[in-house]
């Protein structure tokens, strides 16, 4: 059964940007896509130990701030070397002004 955890308010993230969300000993990245939708992935790049929260969101891509590898944050698909392993994605729902991540 999915456990829905409140991650942030909808206006905590600018459109086409992301923030870091930590829960327990896990860390996530929450995205606000240009089309207004919200998404969530694992927080760290699958290539090296780097958090994606300092990266650049370009459309539906997140670029790792260290090596410029890219993922499609809607699907987690690795799109540009040096990332080869896909990113884990998590379900997201918005209720009122709050963004929830399903764990």
């Amino acid at each position: 059964m999915t456990d829905w955890i409140r991650a942030c308010a909808t206006d905590d993230i600018d459109p086409e940007d992301l923030i870091r969300f930590d829960h327990g000993d896990r860390t996530f990245a929450i995205y606000h896509a240009p089309d207004g939708r919200f998404y969530a992935t694992a927080g760290r790049c699958t290539h090296e130990n780097v958090h994606l929260c300092d990266g650049l969101v370009m459309g539906h891509l997140i670029e790792c701030p260290k090596h410029n590898g890219q993922f499609d944050y809607r699907t987690g698909e690795a799109k540009r070397a040096p990332v080869c392993v896909n990113l884990q994605c998590f379900p997201v729902k918005v209720e009122g002004d709050d963004v929830f991540i399903g764990l």
Binding site: H47, E48, K66, H67, A81, P82
Partner: peptide, 10 residues
């Protein structure tokens, strides 16, 4: 060298 340079930055 793409991989070599990634390691250089890590």
């Amino acid at each position: 060298w793409r991989w070599s340079h990634a390691r250089h930055h890590t």
